[in-house]
Amino acid sequence: MDKTPNNKAWFLVLPVAVLVAFSAVIPLMTVVNYSVQDTFGGNQFFWVGLEWYEEMLHSERMWNALGRQLAFSAIILAIEVPLGVFVALNMPKRGFWASFCLVLMSLPLLIPWNVVGTIWQIFGRVDIGLLGHTLAALGIEYNYTQDAVAAWVTVIVMDVWHWTSLVALLAYAGLQSIPDAYYQAAKIDQASRWKVFRYIQLPKMAGVLMIAILLRFMDSFMIYTEPFVVTGGGPGNATTFLSIDLVKMALGQFDLGPAAAFSIMYFLVILLISWVFYTVMTNLDREGR
């Protein structure tokens, strides 16, 4: 749709600008402020320039957390996106069963994140959990509080459980928007099932799938509550992702300077990657209409 140029539209945006300025800009400036200063306690701060940034850039702790974080985000995207699309392709198209599946699939999305953690904490325990108990009965050694691999598997399966439905619902919405005529044309051309998927369904889903990938990337990159409840970042530091590390540093040890520098770099990494996704997405949007 062509839009009318009109700078008075700023007045309509003003409430949002004021509110977000209060809840985002002021806090962010505090963080920037801390990141360039040091303190000896009390309220005495002095300027240290980019020292904290330099320290954090050479800190093995941060690089390790970043590495784990990238691995985690990559793994869950690699599982959730194909699985979500697959589930969406298998969903009933309309009628009672469609609503039924929609409601049940949305259920995990509305569970508070710490309860998600609690659910899997209980579910995975060897003594009282169905999963842990079954695995133990099958003779598989599994203990997410002590074994790093088991902890990773638990956290990843939990995230797949929690968020695959989001990808599936988005893909489903994309599929629903394909007119029947497309399928009829494909049928006349005797297109195979794979060709229908590759040349009709996938292109039509591309836009929503980008939203799905963007949302999943952003949220997995700042995951905190669920792994914190299940593993507490352990065993050792095996599941200490960026947010967990940051909270430990800022609220636990009160290392304001390094934590603030960490925050800023963390934010910039998310911003950079999301910007790439967003640009691709808006380009797709433009082509689509």
Partner: peptide, 11 residues
């Protein structure tokens, strides 16, 4: 996109 962890302390 901002991680809530970044904002916890300033908030």
């Amino acid at each position: 996109m901002a991680p809530p962890a970044v904002f916890a302390l300033p908030f």
